[in-house]
Structure formats: structure tokens, C-alpha cells
Design a protein around this nucleic acid. Structure first.
Lengths: 128, 128
DNA sequence: CGTAACTCATTACCCTCGCTAACTATTCCC
DNA sequence: GGGAATAGTTAGCGAGGGTAATGAGTTACG
């Protein structure tokens, strides 16, 4: 179960970010997959709706996203990245890559390729 | 950052266990690496001493391990798996493997090999 | 057409598990 | 012998997850 330990390690590494993993992950999802409703976000991140609601609320306060109630179905709320949110995603990706790329540089090209392949496979597994 | 999502997925999958990841991880460490002191366990799991202390306390209450103060250095405490703890490790490993092996069976042998290699590399990275 | 059932978001509250700070007991060393 | 260092522990905080309950809006149907 070294995966958990690596996750903890990664988490520790980006420490002086203002955003937690879950928070950033939401911004990233909005960035790569466009606007979502609350529940679709919750489902995508495999988290309960109330949890996602809190995360979204936090990100809204920071001005990274906006909630707009749908005009057709007023129960629904459309969550969209603000320009500031988009900037943050780009900046954070860059920052986070720093440690990883540093760590990856210490590996052989073969190892790097292995990691990349495995990442793709894991992605598919997680989305199953 | 699909790694976090996979970790969450794995976590969800073993849900009706009585042990959390961290708790099980401690038992597994004792199982594979033998008795530890509190601080060595904390360091191995990359967790603070108080956190590890709580986890160990919990596992002690369940009768999975014992604390014995060292006779030479009475500050130190030796933490050892009980037979019940050993059984639990074996049983839990078996149970946890179920979902993973199921998921892995859906992959091609090449993919499985990739995952295995990557796991080894990640292990090394996490322990750096 | 009106009401019952359902759906989406939200609020209230709790639990787990991480942390730091502070304390105790023991050992080290001068 | 007494101060510094070390191992474990206790106390208390915060982040982030969960479930239950509520409110508002929509849909189904008698």
C-alpha cells in the first residue's frame, strides 16, 4: 500500500499552497471539463454532495468560481470557473509540477515511462 | 492528480472493515518489519508521534498489539503484534486484495506489469 | 389542477485523523 | 548531582470527510 504513503508525501510537498488537494482538484475538474452542477462535481470527485458544497463554498469565497442558479430548473446551480480561478489552476499546476518533475528527474527514462503508463491505467481504474 | 482519486477509491472499497488505512498500515508494518518503538513507527508512516500514539492506543484496545516498556531504557516502549493482530493482518490483506485483484484482472498482463513496476518505483520515491 | 413523490442544494452536526504545544519520566553527560 | 536531551504521552485545535434533516423546485398522475 505504498500508494497511500506517496499520496501523503505529495500532499506534504505542496504544503505552502493555499489550496488543499480536494479544493484544487475541483478547480482542475472545472478547468478541464467545464461547468458542472454541484452533484456532478460531487460524483466526479467521489465525495458526498454536502462535502462538495462546502468545498465549492470555500472556493466561491476566494473568488475562484461562481454559483449561478439555472434559469430552466431553479433547483440546479451551475458552477463555473472565474478568470481568477483559471489563473490559479494554471499557477498551481506549475508549482506542483516542480517537486514531481524534480523527483522524476532522479529516475531513469524507463522508470519515468513506467510511471506515466501506470498513471494512465490508474486513471482508468479510478474512473470505472 | 488521479492518484488521489484512486486512493479515495481504494479507501471506499474496503469500507466495512473495522480498520482505517492508517491503522491497518501500522499492523502491516509490524507484521513485515517486526516490533518497533513508537517513534520508529511514526517515522516509518510519516506521521507525528502523537498521531501514532493514538493509533497505537486504538489498536492496543482492540488487542492487536501490546506496549511493553523496555527494561534497559524505561522511556522506550516496544510495540509488538499479538497473535490476534497477526491474524487480522492476514485476513485484511486477503479481503483488501479482493477488489484490487478483481480490478487488476480486467487489465491486460502488460498493464499489470506496468502497475507493478510503477508501484515499486513509487515506493522508492515515497521513502526518499 | 392540485397534491404527492421526487430531486438538487444546502444546513446542522458528528467523527476521524492529522497537527503543535505542553508535560512527565527517564537517560545522558559534565 | 543537576541541567540538557530524548521517548512517550495528554490536551486541544483544524481540515475535511460523512449522514440526517430541511427547503425549494419540478414532475407525475388521479
Amino acid at each position: 500500500m505504498g500508494t497511500f504513503r506517496l499520496a501523503r508525501r505529495l500532499r506534504a510537498e505542496k504544503s505552502d499552497d493555499d489550496l488543499s488537494d480536494g479544493q484544487f482538484s475541483v478547480l482542475a475538474a472545472l478547468f478541464t471539463h467545464g461547468p458542472h452542477t454541484l452533484s456532478s462535481l460531487a460524483e466526479r470527485e467521489r465525495v458526498s454532495a454536502p462535502s462538495m458544497n462546502r468545498t465549492v463554498g470555500f472556493l466561491e469565497e476566494l473568488g475562484y468560481l461562481t454559483r449561478v442558479t439555472d434559469s430552466e430548473d431553479k433547483r440546479r446551480v451551475t458552477i463555473t470557473l472565474t478568470p481568477s480561478g483559471t489563473d490559479t489552476v494554471k499557477a498551481t499546476v506549475k508549482k506542483r509540477d516542480a517537486w514531481l518533475t524534480h523527483a522524476l528527474k532522479a529516475l531513469s527514462p524507463e522508470d519515468r515511462a513506467t510511471i506515466a503508463d501506470a498513471a494512465a491505467i490508474m486513471q482508468r481504474m479510478a474512473e470505472r
